[in-house]
Simulated scan of single mutants.
Amino acid sequence: MKKFSLFFHPAEIDLSFSPFALRLDNQTYQIMKASDENIADLLGLEQEVYFGRTPWSRFSFKSELKKHANSLYLVVYQGSTLVGFVGMRMQAQEGHITNIAVKPAFQKRGIGGFLLRTMIEIAQKNHAVQMTLEVRSDNYNAQSLYRKIGFRDNFIRKNYYSAEHADAVSMIKKIADREQEEVN
């Protein structure tokens, strides 16, 4: 019965996060919660990653950053340069990656994987049993990273990116709740 307890009586979501410095690939990065002050940098990074487009608008970021009860956005800086970010929304027993991007010059250095694993850990602490995300069906590099971390294809969302008439692959990763692991 304990297995179903969290479903019927969801635990309070704790998305607290303390900033810290990280050393990866002989470089030092600062990881912190995103705030409104980061929006200009977030939009700039999106333009660089998405070839001049910004899939998310200023309003979208501002709106998501206000959802403190169930959303967490992290930014990664090297000095004053934003090199990556990730967003997650907690819903029921699922962590959903809403957005992730790493500056092209900083890709393949472990930043994206670190951000995903960090969100998985936070979701586990909040009793999530799975993680989900969508990725463009033609973004093979991102899909490869997600698969290395344990995400699997779930289904295709036709015309998910309507502005570009592009499909998305919905991906899922089953994760174990640490408390549940201790019970078993």
Results as ranks from 00 to 15, higher is better:
residue 177 D to A: 04
residue 107 Q to R: 15
residue 168 A to Y: 03
residue 96 H to T: 03
residue 51 F to G: 07
residue 56 W to A: 00
residue 131 M to G: 00
residue 26 N to K: 15
residue 87 G to V: 08
residue 106 F to N: 02
residue 5 S to I: 13
residue 94 E to R: 10
residue 28 T to H: 13
residue 29 Y to R: 04
residue 85 F to C: 05
residue 21 A to Y: 12
residue 174 K to P: 00
residue 138 D to A: 13
residue 116 L to H: 03
residue 10 P to D: 07
residue 65 L to P: 01
residue 45 L to F: 08
residue 18 S to M: 10
residue 3 K to N: 08
residue 90 M to H: 07
residue 138 D to P: 06
residue 5 S to T: 11
residue 55 P to Q: 06
residue 167 D to Y: 11
residue 19 P to S: 15
residue 65 L to S: 03
residue 4 F to R: 11
residue 83 V to L: 04
residue 67 K to Y: 08
residue 107 Q to Y: 10
residue 150 G to E: 04
residue 39 I to V: 15
residue 123 A to S: 13
residue 46 E to L: 05
residue 34 A to G: 08
residue 37 E to M: 10
residue 88 M to G: 07
residue 94 E to Y: 03
residue 126 N to C: 07
residue 163 A to H: 02
residue 41 D to I: 10
residue 145 L to Q: 00
residue 5 S to A: 09
residue 43 L to Q: 07
residue 104 P to Q: 06
residue 103 K to V: 09
residue 105 A to Y: 09
residue 119 M to L: 15
residue 3 K to F: 10
residue 41 D to R: 11
residue 63 S to N: 12
residue 167 D to H: 11
residue 158 K to G: 07
residue 164 E to I: 12
residue 72 L to G: 06
residue 68 H to D: 13
residue 113 G to A: 03
residue 146 Y to C: 05
residue 131 M to W: 02
residue 135 V to M: 09
residue 61 F to R: 03
residue 134 E to K: 07
residue 35 S to N: 12
residue 105 A to W: 05
residue 46 E to I: 11
residue 60 S to T: 12
residue 96 H to D: 08
residue 87 G to Q: 00
residue 183 V to T: 08
residue 18 S to Y: 07
residue 167 D to P: 02
residue 74 L to M: 07
residue 174 K to A: 14
residue 156 I to V: 15
residue 16 S to Q: 02
residue 171 M to C: 06
residue 99 N to Y: 05
residue 125 K to R: 11
residue 74 L to H: 10
residue 168 A to G: 03
residue 94 E to V: 09
residue 142 A to M: 04
residue 128 A to N: 05
residue 97 I to A: 13
residue 133 L to S: 02
residue 1 M to G: 13
residue 86 V to W: 01
residue 150 G to C: 03
residue 38 N to K: 01
residue 103 K to H: 15
residue 160 Y to F: 02
residue 155 F to N: 11
residue 6 L to G: 04
residue 105 A to P: 01
residue 53 R to L: 12
residue 117 R to Y: 01
residue 7 F to K: 14
residue 20 F to E: 14
residue 89 R to D: 02
residue 141 N to G: 08
